[in-house]
Design a binder for these strands. Sequence first.
DNA 1: ACTGTAGGCCAACACCCGTTGACCTCCGCG
DNA 2: CGCGGAGGTCAACGGGTGTTGGCCTACAGT
Lengths: 190, 190
Amino acid sequence: MTGPETPRRRSDVTRTAILEAARERFASDGYDRATVRAIARDAGIDPSMVMRYYGSKEGLFAAVIDVELDFPDLGELDPDRLGVVLVTHFLELWERDTVLRTLLRVGVTNESGSDRLRQVFATQLVPAARAFVPDPADAERRAALVASQVLGMALVRYVLKFGPAADMSRADVIAWLAPTVQRYITAEAP
Amino acid sequence: MTGPETPRRRSDVTRTAILEAARERFASDGYDRATVRAIARDAGIDPSMVMRYYGSKEGLFAAVIDVELDFPDLGELDPDRLGVVLVTHFLELWERDTVLRTLLRVGVTNESGSDRLRQVFATQLVPAARAFVPDPADAERRAALVASQVLGMALVRYVLKFGPAADMSRADVIAWLAPTVQRYITAEAP
DNA sequence: ACTGTAGGCCAACACCCGTTGACCTCCGCG
DNA sequence: CGCGGAGGTCAACGGGTGTTGGCCTACAGT
């Protein structure tokens, strides 16, 4: 489905140039406004090469939104520090590259974008939560609460760029959000 | 502001028909995918009428995103119930009409949409927070934290439609989010 | 009854999009 | 040396977009 695992070719340079340009364009413009022509221009090649290598705009997009939340080893962790560790990890994830920003930006308007976002939620966040919640039966609900706070902060801080949210230091964000996330995961249901 | 007014001219009927169709299209499709032609078709008129009455697509959009958060009277409220009252109010707001959904959807891709969103934040949420935070100097930061949680829940529940978030009852959402919001507003800075 | 005008439709314009297929240009290998 | 194919360009197609201006029509004021 995703990722044609072809061996190394001489055209890999162009291939990755397209991918890199696409990452930035999709991240900053969203799916609709990011045109194949603009991506090709950024990559310094002809638009038709995009089609040759990725089949279609949808195919290129699918190659871009291949995201791994890539949690650290939570197994041997003091459960009281879960909130701090998770929020710290998410902040790093958002600041490291553009893929999550892309996914958020596109997930809001594009169906295949929100599909992918739901999939990441279901296959990566929910299982991670399952190991720590008091009752595995409501792991989904607790993961959704965590997602609401983490995505919400990412939204106001990195996408909408609300002044006060964007200006907060990482330490402050962690200090404020960690207790919230901690409670959503470990607290007794209200 | 917006009420059922008896149309003095025949054109007022068309005018509001366009506005109503635009509200739904922008809410469900976002700015780019909501085409003037589709809106006109929904309203049962010709696309050129949209231009006649609203000047441009951008002008029509500006008429759509006229939002009032319209807080209840918070003045004579037990400060301990602030979280519950605020979360309840926001849930009602999101479920009452489509304008906030539109704003969120468009704010993520469209510059004039996120401008408007920042403006609502600065002129309506921040002042409301200022009355309750311990130190008025960091009202902006606390309002941003509240916005991150409230917008985040709206995002996963109403826009991305994460199963567990969409299925939660209103009472459960309030029970989980109210303490968070309460803390963001009234707690001592960490 | 006549007519000016507001309300509405139709067809077209200029532009941009994703996508396609014909063509060119090297370079490695026989 | 010949040549086949990979890597790349170019121009075009069909369709959709926001927007414009000319034309029709029904009704209100005289």
